[in-house]
Write a protein that binds this DNA or RNA. Structure first.
Lengths: 341, 341
DNA sequence: ATGAAAGCGCTAACAG
DNA sequence: CTGTTAGCGCTTTCAT
């Protein structure tokens, strides 16, 4: 059991003051090179490690960034997190990551504990359930940088990083129309989150332009899990006018749809054309390959990290913009291509 | 800008001592109910929040658990993390997550910063590169609970959570043999990590039993990324004796292999039978569906969390065992099934 | 049941 | 260039 060694121990050992030790350790300019190296050596020998609690308490900062996401284990989210972690880590920041599991309660709780843990900034992608936003006041009131990504809400002085979801929804739907679809169903998550709502608006806009919008063709799911697939197939088969296009706001679920539809005897893309969302790796694995909207997750993570760091440094530049809009991209693959016959 | 309020502020406001406030807030038994509720109310009204730095400094603990993983963004790892987070969060612990990106240097650095951040325990899945383990001494020397999962190393008093990789490798290979394969190639990650090495040993054992082991059929890849797929195909086509079986220790990469092989004109499972590892969702998306070894990631995360918590509590039970061996399972799907002709 | 006071380990203003 | 000293905010022992 190694004993912990403090700057006082080093000070005593070297016959200098704790302040000198502290300054040396922090490479303060006003310390002679000689003392510095003496201190560093002693620190090395004794296995000295700084106590961050004490340091943080004194400095009133933690070099830690909090992150709240709905769910860790999706390809998209873990990719975003990977980007955030890379940037934060390179800048000497630790990441405290927690998941809300789509629950407003848990999001509130996590917000509270992250605040108390003294994170220097907070990055949030909102739970689907969340309808009130007061729990973020603790951060905004104290001017602690708060940033939303992907699932955002507009709060003064809180930057957001998103893609143009309306446009993306429009692009996806327009593409299906261009391929000849006339009765397009939209399968999405709770419209409570603007990311999803905007995609829906884009979908509606494209259809309104050609007078083909049908409210019955909207299917809002609670989760995107495989248990919900039956209701999808039921709705499709029950449709008075045959469904010939499917815009699903999640690749993984779109893939479930493809599998279920094929099993039910539908031909894809001949009978029904399908487009997903995110460009998850799985979209290239399914047969037929899934058309989708490319969502730059890693870049989003990197930008979220850079943006929050620049806020933390007080530097003003592109990353400290109020809103960053990332480009999405329509990716056309087999699942939605018009069949020439 | 809200001002931060401390227990001193509350004490002054209520005309009691800071000690009483502290005790009330912590529900200490020796404080009258009346004072307690008085304090709680004042805390509520003023928006008091505990300062964890001060608390941690005083208590010498952080209610924080550190986690180091090779890479956040894989289905398997994010699922494990999701399990760990659930358990930790429910027990009132925060998680500081960092990725080594398979680099020994970064793993060392992260170990150091997590130590300095005062985590109460550390959970590690080792980087593939890592060959020395001294950097964990800071933890073991001070008896800070340290646990390895998935990619483990045996260090006294450090529990490990793994599956029986040797047996899993054996099962996978034996299955291919049972399906009639006679020239089975093994595609795996660097054998530096015992998880992979043991799978290799199992593979070899199954083949040795029927005198079919060929060292030339071992292909060790640095990464499992799509850029390496060409070398795989090259090796398969160049094999003097036709390869008729493939045991790939990663589903995602196995899927790349299937796609590339199909494109190269091989029939699966007729010409080559394939089995993967992990039972990632993608294994059910590829056509033909991929046989694989089920790896219980979420359970592993949950158990890792429970195990480390029980160490933290000093309780002795099943979760505080030195080694937990989770059951894997052979899952047979189309990609490896003997074709009846 | 409550208060006084020391201590956790580090930082920084001030003094020399 | 270095030392003294006063916090940072909370916990806890020892009194009362």
């Amino acid at each position: 059991m190694e004993k912990k060694v403090t700057i006082y121990d080093l000070a005593k050992r070297l016959g200098v003051s704790p302040a000198t030790v502290s300054r040396s350790l922090n490479d303060h300019p006003s310390i002679s090179l000689k003392t510095k190296s003496k201190v560093m050596l002693a620190a090395e020998e004794t296995g000295y490690r700084i106590n961050k609690f004490a340091s943080n308490l004194s400095l009133q900062k933690s070099n830690t960034i909090g992150v709240i996401v709905p769910k860790l284990n999706s390809d998209f989210m873990s990719t975003v997190l990977s980007g955030i972690e890379k940037i934060a880590n390179d800048a000497g920041y630790n990441l405290i990551i927690s998941q809300s599991l789509e629950s407003e309660e848990k999001e509130k709780f996590n917000t509270k504990t992250l605040f108390e843990s003294g994170v220097d900034a907070l990055l949030v992608s909102l739970a689907n359930e969340t309808k009130t936003y007061d729990h973020f006041n603790t951060f905004t009131n104290r001017k602690i940088p708060l940033l939303f990504f992907d699932r955002v809400i507009n709060i003064p002085d809180c930057p957001t990083i998103i893609i143009d979801n309306l446009r993306a929804g429009y692009d996806a739907t327009k593409h299906l129309l261009d391929q000849g679809c006339r009765n397009i169903m939209h399968i999405t998550h709770g419209l409570n989150r603007s990311a999803y709502y905007q995609r829906y608006v884009g979908y509606k806009k494209a259809l309104d332009e050609v007078k083909l919008f049908e409210i019955e063709n909207l299917l809002v799911l609670d989760q995107f899990n495989s248990r919900e697939i039956d209701s999808v197939i039921a709705k499709i088969t029950a449709s008075p006018e045959p469904i010939d296009g499917l815009f699903v706001t999640n690749d993984t679920f779109a893939v479930y749809c493809i599998k279920a539809l094929l099993k039910a005897g539908y031909r894809i893309p001949d009978d029904i054309k399908i487009i997903g969302f995110n460009n998850d790796p799985v979209s290239e694995v399914i047969n037929p390959e899934l058309s989708t909207i490319e969502y730059p997750g890693y870049r989003m993570g990197v930008l979220a990290g850079q943006s929050i760091l620049s806020h933390l440094n007080g530097s003003i530049n592109i990353e400290s913009a109020d809103q960053i809009l990332l480009k999405h991209q329509l990716i056309i693959r087999q699942s939605s291509r018009k069949t020439t016959n």
